[in-house]
């Protein structure tokens, strides 16, 4: 199989925060009755089913709650095919959807003590430490496009967006992180 190519080929911008494209990462959209899927998720990925807006992580895998009937399973890229086969085998009697969306998403990371500030310039979501706690996944918009924000630790934020708008989101974040644009409202 061809090697995966990320949309921005690992682009990087250094402003008052660093914006870096990360990946490739395996991503599987898993939809269905989340209660019924919990056992299979544990068997295939070794992860607990996340509660509303939460992310569970263990041993390089992570599972993010996306909506009442959807989670995003994140795992190393080479393991996607195997995981899909295991899911299909385990869930053949359950109404569900398991789709490889690794190539449909782009991943960006914002690092720096003012990372929350870069987001605050672009989204209507409350990105204060109280409004977006560490470990939660918040689906919202960045300027004109949907995106999911996840504060991994203070000063480190991961952004998941659609691949087709990766350059747009990268440019937005870079513009918001330009030196001299610090507001210092949220200092980690």
């Amino acid at each position: 199989m061809s090697d995966p190519v990320t949309p921005l080929k690992g682009a990087r911008y250094d402003g008052f925060c660093q914006i870096t494209e990360i990946g490739p990462r395996g991503m599987i959209a898993l939809r269905g009755d989340l209660v019924a899927l919990a056992g299979t998720l544990r068997a295939v990925a070794g992860l607990d089913m996340p509660c509303q807006r939460q992310v569970t992580a263990a041993g390089g895998n992570a599972c993010a709650w996306m909506s009442p009937d959807e989670v995003l399973l994140m795992l190393p890229r080479p393991e996607v095919e195997g995981a899909l086969a295991q899911l299909a085998a385990a869930l053949q009697n359950l109404h569900h959807l398991a789709a490889d969306v690794s190539d449909a998403r782009a991943l960006l990371r914002i690092t720096g003590p003012l990372a929350r500030e870069v987001l605050a310039k672009l989204t209507p979501a409350d990105v204060s430490p109280a409004g977006l706690p560490v470990g939660e996944l918040r689906r919202t918009r960045l300027a004109q496009v949907p995106a999911a924000l996840r504060v991994i630790a203070e000063g480190e934020v991961e952004v998941i967006c659609f691949r087709s708008v990766a350059q747009y989101v990268f440019d937005l974040l870079s513009m918001a992180a330009r030196p001299g644009g610090e507001v210092t409202l949220f200092r980690a």
Binding site: R53, S67, T140
Partner: peptide, 11 residues
Amino acid sequence: PCCGIAADETE
């Protein structure tokens, strides 16, 4: 009511 987020109308 599905995700518990207080979303503003632009979302």
